[in-house]
């Protein structure tokens, strides 16, 4: 996927999921202030992005993302990681532990 294609996909996901006007979704728009999303919305963005990246997102990396531009870069990096076959982050239980083997 080219950066432009990723951009279009990200805008489509944001507008469809959160009733946002496409014109309001700019590269420099901040997710939490400009687009008025909260932490649950953020989880849902990453759920939707799994269908693009084919990977479980890294919660630590995801937490750092502030703008639409950074979100696009994140998808780019995830696609590259998928290409390289990088391992995915661990699943965490609600108490912070990982599921028993």
């Amino acid at each position: 996927m080219t950066r432009d294609e990723i951009h279009d996909t990200v805008v489509e996901i944001l507008s469809d999921s959160f009733e946002l006007d496409r014109a309001d979704i700019k590269l420099e728009s901040t997710l939490y202030e400009d687009l008025d999303l909260d932490s649950i919305d953020a989880v849902d963005i990453f759920v939707q992005l799994r269908s693009v990246t084919g990977r479980r997102p890294d919660p630590a990396k995801a937490k750092e993302i502030r703008t639409v531009d950074e979100l696009i870069t994140f998808v780019e990096e995830e696609l590259a990681a998928a290409e390289r076959g990088d391992p995915e982050p661990d699943v965490q239980l609600p108490d912070g532990s990982t599921p028993p083997e």
Binding site: V43, F46, L93, D95
Partner: peptide
Amino acid sequence: THVGLPDTLSVITDLHMQLDV
């Protein structure tokens, strides 16, 4: 087109995950 449970911050997902707690 696809309804899958979120990894976290969801009542229903938490119910599944807390079984092992």
